[in-house]
Design a protein around this nucleic acid. Structure first.
Lengths: 254, 254
DNA sequence: CAGTGGTCTAGACCACTAC
DNA sequence: TAGTGGTCTAGACCACTGA
C-alpha cells in the first residue's frame, strides 16, 4: 500500500490517507482509527512509522489517542460564541457575569472556581496600563471557568489596590453581577473595553489546567476595561482554542 | 542526568529541562539547542528519546528544526496588530486597502498576490449570509497577502454576481482603495463589519501556502461587510497565528 | 569532510481497557 | 487475557549544511 516512488515519506502517505478518510466522512467524528498493528499490516511498514503518521494527525488536532482503547476522530466540543455585546449593562442587571449570561443562554452549565486571591507585584503590562511603577503591588483574582464540567478558560483579573481594598472584589464571592457590578457601585461604571487576542500553543501547565488535547491551540486574551477612559480592570485570559469562537461587530467610522 | 524515580518519562524530563533553559533566557531566541547526539550523551538515553523531547518542543512552537544545521529557539516574527479602526473610511481615501494601510504604518513591505478570480458555487455560509439558494454561483477573489516577503494570510472574498459583474472587482487590479472603494462607488458604502475568529491547527495545504513552522496555529476569520444592513462582501481568511494580534475596542452598550 | 536533523526498521516493556 | 496506545532501546541510511 506504500508507494516507494511517491516523494512523500511513508509516514506522510499514511497520514494523508487517514486525513482523507476523515475529511471525506469515511471516518466520522468519534470513530476509531485502525490500530497501530492494523496499519503496520496494511502498509507493510514498521510500527514506529505507523505511529509517526498517527502522531502527525494528533498534532493537527484531528484525532485523540486513548491508551488501551484506540485512537479516535475528535468530536468537536460545543463551541461558545463570545460576542461583542457581552458587556452590555442589562446583562449585569440580571445579576450575571458577562460570560455566565452568554453561556447559560446556550443552555450550558457554568461554574467559576477561584484559584487564588492575592496581592502580587504588577506584571509589566499591568503596570503600564495602570501607569504604576513596575512591581507596585496590585490585587489579583485568579479563576478557572468551567463550561459543562469542562475547564475552558483561565482568567486573572488585576485591580488597583486603592480601588478595591475592602470591597467584595477581595472576597471569594463578589456577589450578583460579578466584579463589574462592584466597580459600578464604587462609582466606576464600565464604559469601554479593549481586547487583544494572540494565538499560540499552550504551555504544559495550561494543558493540565484546561485538560487540553494535544494539537489544541489557546487564545491569550488581554482585556482592558475602562470607566471614562480610566482603566479599572485588567484581565489576562487563556482560552481553550477549540471551545471558543470570538465574534465582534463594529460600525465603520469615518 | 535522567532521574529514574521521577514520575515524568525521560523524554518529558529532557523537554522540561530545555523549556526551562528557553524561558530562563539561558537559551535565547535564535540560539541552537544541544544536538541530538549531545543530548544522548548528556542524558544517557537513546537517540529516539532525545528526538521525542525535541519534537515536543516543536509542537509547542518553541523551537524550529533546520536539517543539517541544528534546532533553534524560534525568533518571534514581527507581529501585526489588527485593529478595529482598520476599516475607517479616511484610510481608503488615501488610496489604500485596510490591511495595507496598517502594515505600511509599521514600516513593513506589503504585497498582494491574486491567486484566483472565478465564479464558483457559493459555500454554505456564503449562501446563508447572502440569502441565496445553496450552490448559487458567486464571484470569488482569492489572494495571498505577503508582509515583509513572508506569506501571512490567505483571503477569499465572495461577492454577489449581480453586484460586481462588469466591475473592477472582477479584474486582477481593483484600483486604489481596494474592493471597498469599488463597492462604495457602486452605491454601497461600508457601514458595519462583523468578524468571527476561530482557532485551529493548519491543514497541510495551509502549512505550505503560509510557510508555517510546525506548532503554529492559524486563525480562521469570517468577515461580513455590511452596507446599511445588506451584506456586500464575505471574506474567509486564514491568518498565520504567530504574525497577528487581534485588537478590538468597543464602547459598552446599555 | 564531519556533523546535523529527518526518517526508518526491529525489536521490547508497561499501563490500561474491554471482555 | 488479548489488544490497545505510549514509551523505550539500538541500531541504520539519507539529504543537507558549513568548513
Amino acid at each position: 500500500m506504500i508507494d516507494p516512488t511517491d516523494p512523500r515519506s511513508p509516514s506522510r502517505q499514511i497520514a494523508d490517507d487517514l486525513r482523507n478518510d476523515i475529511h471525506s466522512g469515511a471516518l466520522e467524528p468519534g470513530a476509531r482509527l485502525p490500530s497501530e498493528r492494523e496499519l503496520v499490516e496494511r502498509y507493510g511498514t514498521s510500527a514506529q512509522t505507523a505511529r509517526q503518521a498517527v502522531s502527525l494527525l494528533k498534532t493537527e488536532g484531528l484525532v485523540v489517542g486513548m491508551p488501551g482503547r484506540g485512537v479516535f476522530v475528535r468530536e468537536r466540543p460545543p463551541v461558545l460564541r463570545v460576542g461583542s455585546d457581552r458587556y452590555a449593562r442589562w446583562r449585569r442587571d440580571q445579576g450575571k457575569a458577562p460570560l455566565q449570561a452568554e453561556v447559560e443562554e446556550l443552555g450550558l452549565k457554568w461554574r467559576q472556581e477561584v484559584t487564588e486571591l492575592a496581592e502580587v507585584p504588577a506584571p509589566e503590562w499591568v503596570a503600564k496600563w495602570y501607569d504604576l511603577a513596575p512591581e507596585t503591588p496590585v490585587f489579583v483574582r485568579r479563576r478557572r471557568f468551567w463550561i459543562d464540567d469542562h475547564p475552558s478558560q483561565l482568567a486573572d483579573s488585576y485591580y488597583r489596590l486603592d480601588l478595591v481594598t475592602g470591597t467584595r472584589i477581595m472576597e471569594e464571592r463578589t456577589g450578583p453581577g460579578g466584579g463589574y457590578r462592584v466597580l459600578e457601585e464604587l462609582g466606576y461604571p464600565l464604559t469601554r473595553v479593549r481586547e487583544e487576542i494572540a494565538l499560540r500553543m499552550p504551555t504544559p501547565d495550561e494543558v493540565r489546567a484546561l485538560r487540553l488535547e494535544p494539537g489544541t491551540p489557546v487564545a491569550e486574551l488581554h482585556r482592558v476595561s475602562f470607566s471614562n477612559d480610566k482603566p479599572i480592570e485588567l484581565l489576562q485570559g487563556i482560552l481553550a482554542g477549540d471551545r471558543y469562537v470570538f465574534c465582534y461587530e463594529m460600525p465603520v467610522t469615518d
